[in-house]
Simulated scan of single mutants.
Amino acid sequence: MTLPSYPAPAHVAGAAGPARPDYEADVIILAMDRAEETVAAIASARAQAGVTRHVWIADQGSRPENLARLAAAVEGAADATLVRLDRNWGVAGGRNRATALGTGRVVFALDNDAEFATDQTLARAVQALAAEPDLAAIACRILVFSTGQDDLLSWGYPKSLLPRSAESFDACTFVGAGHAIRRADFAAAGGYDDALHFTWEEFDVSLRFLNMGKRIRYRGDIAVRHKVSGEGRFAWSGTRWFHFVRNRLYIALKYGAAPAAVLPRFLAYQVKGARNGVLAQGLRAGPAALALARRFRPGPEGAGLYRMTAAARDYIARNDAAHRGGLTRRVQAEVLSLLPGAAR
């Protein structure tokens, strides 16, 4: 598979493009308001040393005054470019379009409320991918910006591995706040699924990486500092719960699960949604997931990426399921995840 070709977005400020054709990494930052945090993220990216890189900021609908602040942050810069996308494509679609702007061998996605932990973070991620050709992605350690402690709401791995947060281990997914992907593998996997908009997009593309025979490596020594903290991050208002439920069910369906097989997960989500006052969102998510799955057509070139191979299943068993304990422990974890305030 290859990435789609996207229309060129409107150039707002900064360089027209990278200063040199052969460089190591693109840093992509999606923006929509939150100008103060985004300007700090841009400064952090531009301060990365020991690596050739270009910083791309893709705005998805900031108010004029905030867009002007972003433009001022890169005005005259040779190493950064601010563009404005034609609409808000969400996290998945926005990252696809931002990634397509560059040609660096590595794409590092940095949340607009995060910063690199040191000025060598990007270089270390690039070196890590270069050292192991079968790695498709590096999952960074996500720290709370104000304390330097692990951001527990950004821990996307079995809880039993949390004591190893400063170490390294193979993983089955990565966290969006800060991660590095090998561009060639991202293109071969077809990029993110635009239909997801936001939530679960990293898990979805990770499954395709695993089906390609690639690995994902969590690196506790390569970190970003995340400014969003506290139990309020998982907002129950708006449509967040709808996307959370719909996307997880849709992913299961498009990788071959029968509707009956995802029913228990759907019902469990309804219990949690009811307890948090968003039952209607969860109920709408089921039919929406089925509709997305019916429309999904990977095409002959990519069909094999959506059938989990024996090797991929074995990888998941060793690097995820094995850390979740036996049946009793896993059932307990499922029950605890349904309690109010648990994000997943």
Rank of each mutant, 00 (worst) to 15 (best):
N211L: 00
V271L: 13
E231V: 13
C172M: 15
G238P: 03
A260L: 13
F186P: 01
A257L: 14
F242L: 13
L267V: 09
R208F: 03
R265Q: 06
D185H: 06
R215E: 01
P259Q: 01
A252T: 00
G178T: 09
V271Y: 08
Q270N: 09
A274H: 06
D204E: 13
G176Q: 11
R215H: 12
F174Q: 09
N211T: 03
R233P: 00
A180M: 08
G176N: 12
F242V: 07
Q281A: 08
L210S: 05
R219A: 10
P264V: 05
G230L: 09
A188Y: 01
G273I: 04
L196M: 13
V271N: 07
G238R: 05
S206C: 10
L267W: 06
F174W: 12
V205R: 05
V224I: 01
A252K: 04
E201I: 00
W241N: 09
R233D: 01
D221I: 12
T199N: 15
L249K: 00
R246G: 02
G273R: 07
I251M: 13
H197C: 12
D193H: 12
A274D: 07
A223H: 13
Y218H: 15
R217D: 09
F198G: 09
H197M: 13
I216C: 12
T199E: 15
V175F: 15
A180F: 10
R208Q: 03
A258Q: 03
F244D: 04
R265E: 07
H226D: 02
E231R: 06
R208C: 00
L196V: 01
D221G: 04
R246V: 03
I181M: 14
V262G: 01
A223Q: 14
A189R: 00
R215I: 04
D204W: 11
Q270I: 08
G232S: 06
L210V: 10
P264D: 03
K272T: 02
I181E: 08
W241F: 15
D204G: 10
L253W: 08
A195L: 15
L207S: 04
R215V: 01
A188F: 00
G232W: 06
R208K: 12
S206G: 06
E231G: 12
A235P: 00
A260C: 09
G213R: 11
A189C: 00
F198H: 11
Y269Q: 10
Q270Y: 10
V271C: 10
Y192R: 01
K254C: 14
Y269C: 12
G232R: 03
D204Q: 12
Q281L: 06
K272I: 02
V262Q: 01
H197S: 12
V224S: 00
Y192E: 03
D185S: 13
G238A: 11
G230C: 07
A171L: 15
Y250M: 11
K227V: 09
Y218Q: 15
A195M: 14
D204K: 08
G178Q: 10
A274Q: 10
V228R: 12
I222S: 00
L207N: 05
